[in-house]
């Protein structure tokens, strides 16, 4: 694997996770439990889709410059014409919205990872990655602030909100480990100073979630539990196909359609 092939793959992972979570959150526009939360969810989704565009645009540039698989495709092509098996988003982000506690549990576990990941990438040896990460980090700081506040509020709230929050956390937990399971791509780019060191990232994330759960009076599930994996090879849960079918319908039904 050349460094450019690894870089292309790495950028797809970054872009796809942002994209799929952004799309999931958009399902709540018109459906959120409160108007303020609906606006917040819509704005978080917009930030994520914007970041996805930056990563996928860079992925397309890298592919074209290095003439590797995917050459000649634009960011839109990458988003709208790849099938499920070619998607590289985390299994965590494709999970359904569920109830509000489920939505916030998924969001918080992702935001805590995203925040520390972008902090690390803002020092990447690749200036293009550092620039996108530094910009995204400012936005993600507010995402994390909001989702950790909700974990505490629901966890340390009424008996019912506490029970729902704990249940949501226990349910989604099995998808959290994948964020820290590296492969050849991670090793190659981390050694080159371009990608993040996953072990360091895991420690920062652990400290973050343990502190927030303690404050929220929630029990942190075991870090040693079996964790679902597969997205780095394009193996997804059944949830992703439905999401892509909706997201990709228009450009696939009317190729080349524009505003």
């Amino acid at each position: 694997m050349t460094q450019n092939q690894a870089l292309f793959e790495y950028l797809l992972r970054l872009g796809d996770s942002d994209m799929v979570l952004g799309q999931r959150l958009c399902e709540l526009v018109g459906n959120a439990p409160a108007l303020e939360e609906e606006m917040a969810i819509g704005n978080v989704a917009l930030d994520l889709i914007g970041q996805a565009r930056s990563w996928l645009t860079l992925a397309a540039e890298v592919a074209s410059a290095a003439e590797i698989e995917g050459a000649g495709r634009s960011a839109d092509d990458l988003a709208f014409t790849r099938d499920e098996r070619a998607y590289r988003n985390l299994l965590l982000v494709e999970q359904a919205n569920g109830n509000f506690a489920d939505t916030m549990a998924r969001q918080y576990l992702f935001d805590a990872w995203h925040f520390h990941l972008l902090s690390a990438l803002s020092h990447s040896a690749d200036e293009r990655i550092a620039a996108i990460a530094a910009k995204g980090l400012k936005e993600v700081t507010y995402h994390l602030r909001r989702s950790s506040a909700w974990i505490k509020r629901l966890g340390d709230g009424t008996d019912e909100s506490h029970a729902k929050m704990q249940e949501a956390l226990d349910e989604i937990w099995t998808y959290s480990g994948e964020m820290f399971i590296g492969d050849e791509v991670d090793t190659l780019l981390s050694e080159a100073g371009i990608g993040a060191d996953l072990a360091a990232l895991h420690n920062l994330w652990k400290a973050d979630v343990q502190a927030v759960f303690a404050e929220a009076t929630l029990t942190c599930p075991s870090m040693d539990e079996y964790m679902q994996r597969g997205s780095k090879k394009g193996l997804h849960t059944e949830q992703l196909g439905f999401l892509l079918a909706e997201m990709q319908f228009l450009p696939r039904a009317y190729p080349g359609a524009s505003w």
Binding site: M39, A40, K138
Partner: peptide, 28 residues
Amino acid sequence: VSEFGSTACKALYRCNSCLEPFDYFKCI
């Protein structure tokens, strides 16, 4: 009132004196 207002760049606030809601342009 909310970390996000009508756009991502704003938060929603309320004034306890005049009771009016307003947008706050967040620092980023």
